[in-house]
Simulated assay, not measured.
Amino acid sequence: MDRVEEAIGAGVIRYVPAAPVPALPVLSVVNLLSSDSSAVTTGIRDITSKAGSTITAAIELRDAASGETLPLTALFRMPLRASDGRERFVLVSMVDGVATITVTLPESGRWEVTQESINSGLPPAEHMQFAGLTLYIVL
């Protein structure tokens, strides 16, 4: 809604602009690597790697308007969900808006982290934008 009604008395209503909704901070993958030398990345949000290899993703929390890294220091669980319903949680330690996530997946499958999954369980004031990350683990 781009405006709100304001009653100013005697049945008169004035329309005033609604307060802008601030954009959610953006969680960005800035680097994606695998210990598997034959791993293939497609952009910065998609990797195909052999089962048992270690995948490392560097992430940053940025201001949506300026793109500057936000100085958040926190410990949180990041859900990693497989297309067949399996779920794992990765413990993430963010310091001054920067974190490195390391995970080893011993079984094949397509694993994803989505905006919906990272915001699940968080109060709305702590939600963030996230374009997603997909890990294809192959035998």
Rank of each mutant, 00 (worst) to 15 (best):
L80V: 10
A125P: 10
S34F: 01
E5H: 06
D46Y: 13
T41I: 00
A10C: 07
A57C: 05
L72Y: 15
K50D: 02
L61N: 01
M78N: 10
M78H: 08
T100Y: 06
S93E: 10
S38G: 08
T134N: 01
A58I: 08
A19I: 10
G67S: 09
G9I: 03
I47Y: 04
F89H: 14
F76A: 05
T54P: 04
S93F: 05
T54M: 11
T102G: 01
L24G: 08
I55W: 00
P123I: 10
V26W: 04
E126C: 07
G43L: 00
Q115I: 03
E68Q: 13
T73K: 04
G85R: 03
E87L: 11
S83P: 02
A19Q: 12
R3C: 12
L70R: 12
T102R: 04
A82M: 10
L91F: 09
L75A: 11
E126K: 15
E126G: 09
I13S: 12
T56G: 02
F89M: 12
A51F: 12
I137L: 09
L33E: 06
L122Y: 08
F76Y: 15
S49Q: 04
P20S: 08
W111H: 08
A10Q: 11
T100K: 00
T56R: 07
V103T: 08
E126N: 13
D96L: 13
I13T: 15
D84A: 03
L70C: 09
G121R: 01
